[in-house]
Design a protein around this nucleic acid. Sequence first.
DNA 1: ACCTGAACACCGTTCAAGT
DNA 2: ACCTGAACACCGTTCAAGT
Lengths: 177, 177
Amino acid sequence: MQRLAEALGVGTTTLYGYFRSKDELLDAVVDAAAAEYPLPQLGGDWKEQLRTIMATLRDELLGHPAVVHVRLTRPIVTAEGIRRLEAGIRVLRAAGFTNTLAAQAYRSLFLYTFAFATFNALGTASPEIRTALAALPPDEYPAIWDTLHDIVATYADNQFDHGLDALLDGLEVKLRS
Amino acid sequence: MQRLAEALGVGTTTLYGYFRSKDELLDAVVDAAAAEYPLPQLGGDWKEQLRTIMATLRDELLGHPAVVHVRLTRPIVTAEGIRRLEAGIRVLRAAGFTNTLAAQAYRSLFLYTFAFATFNALGTASPEIRTALAALPPDEYPAIWDTLHDIVATYADNQFDHGLDALLDGLEVKLRS
DNA sequence: ACCTGAACACCGTTCAAGT
DNA sequence: ACCTGAACACCGTTCAAGT
């Protein structure tokens, strides 16, 4: 708070005239960050529409990594988050999912997307991981040794699509059964 | 640190004789917590084996919620985490996945599991979410209104299986193509 | 070797007072 | 109404000194 106040050229206590606490200020920051990534027009089949919704969430979190940490401290409901949820449930129900399955499916997609963005945003840097894994004894960890390159590669962006596609394919299986 | 030292009945600075910093102490805590949940004997088909591995990770994080927050601050590699990774990659390769697909699949499962545990452990309490969602105007958010009960229910434990099963089903689709 | 009080820089927040 | 310095309780860490 004191650093923010100094950056703004005001006294620290001035901030408390606008926000009751640091948490309340951060809530507003999170909401403002979310508002920068409004839901675009949805097109394509239900899977493609959900891909668009989740890509928006991912971009929001990657665009403001600091927001991720705040959101993991306590539950925060943003206006954009509500709009994404509404759109997601609509898409899933229109695709034929029951209310229960639609809610569970959205939650699964949300969790995966949030985790991907979290581990990317919080800088789970590949060099450090690589070093740690490469130092393991190959005879004890042969599978890691063989796939070291592939494991490190999962910190790249295309990992997002892999998991999301798998999840969507799995949801389709549930839909058909 | 001062509170921990007091609880231990020693001076604060005594702790720095055993750990170079608070981070280093927390690393040891995280590793100790993980060691409480060793990988059990794996049985069943590849999906069942991965379910067992991920359940172990989930239990570890839910068993020590404070650990979750620490692990989201910086990348931490635990001994048990390495063992789980080795076991997971082995299972996936034995099931027929290529090295690349195995690494991506494990990462997807890990991300989903970690996110589930995170949002449960950090107390994304359903009452607050319910209140926030129930206060929305029904004409603007009809899908949320209709599925309010189902959405709140996704904070329960059986949500874990739903998403994990969907992910595993989706991975099976990839395996067969 | 093992332990420690004092001190430092930093933080969120409150209070009473200033314009 | 809007702003503010001083103060408080708290924190991680360092230093120089104790046994």
